[in-house]
Nucleic acid binder design. Sequence first.
DNA 1: TAGATATAAGACAAATTAAATCTTATTTAT
DNA 2: ATAAATAAGATTTAATTTGTCTTATATCTA
Lengths: 168, 168
Amino acid sequence: MRLTRAGEYAVRCVLYLSRQGEGVLVSRQEVATATDTPTHFLAKIAQQLAKAGIIEIVQGAKGGYRLLRPPTAITLLEVIETIIGEIFLNDCIARPSSCRNSLACTVHRVWLKAREQLRATLASVNFADLLAEECCCLNPLLNPALLNSVDDKCEDNIEKINPRGRQR
Amino acid sequence: MRLTRAGEYAVRCVLYLSRQGEGVLVSRQEVATATDTPTHFLAKIAQQLAKAGIIEIVQGAKGGYRLLRPPTAITLLEVIETIIGEIFLNDCIARPSSCRNSLACTVHRVWLKAREQLRATLASVNFADLLAEECCCLNPLLNPALLNSVDDKCEDNIEKINPRGRQR
DNA sequence: TAGATATAAGACAAATTAAATCTTATTTAT
DNA sequence: ATAAATAAGATTTAATTTGTCTTATATCTA
């Protein structure tokens, strides 16, 4: 029950392109190096992002990728679902035909709420928001707008999970 | 990004035991048949539930499983995390050492919120709640308490996902 | 106490999914 | 034309999930 690595790579890719600016052409090689993504894997991810109208792929020598929209117009949910498909959380909701037992069906209502909440949270953040801080764990100058929209116990949680701090 | 089948089976198992009542001994065979779970797979799941103090396993002839607590004292989150482990949603939060790129780290804050919301939603429902209705898709007599605690657009969503209705 | 019946525990195998790589083809700048 | 870049998809590798099997142990009943 977690985001796949392909999803993580896609987020990094769009974030990197957002930092360079809308419409700026960046080579695949540069993106791959900067985001620590295997080049050929990035190619596949980029193709999906292009199909979704998030980036444009420029072929040929001096080719590369460029963001097609302003970072404010791209949500985290959109990028993630472009790669891993619509989020459903459980089979019972995703493929109702797989649910042959009425007992299992009893939990539908809860899963639907959980799913909608999760999607709403991811949809509430765009890439300009994400760009506003280098890293939420290290940067002491937190963006107030972001603080409002998300859990303000972030530091505590990160501390709890990883007491030694994040490594580069 | 979804609940595993083992998790689904665990929910069905605890739900079935809840229906029989706290402390009532039910054979593994009966649970397996009723919940449509492979017997040996159920055995493994039951062992985890037992370790977590949710059920008791009685060995020997006339053995089986029994619920150790009232259904009101068992949450959906507890059963699910007993089987699939603590919910983290993404690697970056689960294993901070896997996050070598500060770009990826920027999304930590959002994932933490999403994760806490999801866990809170699953923790807000106990097995007495779940037992209150046979199946949220079919039973017209919905439990008002449940309706308050979860998304009231359930029917619409289910309709949207599966227009032909749920099959047995 | 012996035999039957049930679960315990964990090894093992199959299936599925995810991740990464590789190859051939195509596109474009120079 | 050539070089440099991506396209597309086949293939491989790895990880995870699911399911099965075997041997051991416990308990009821006769």
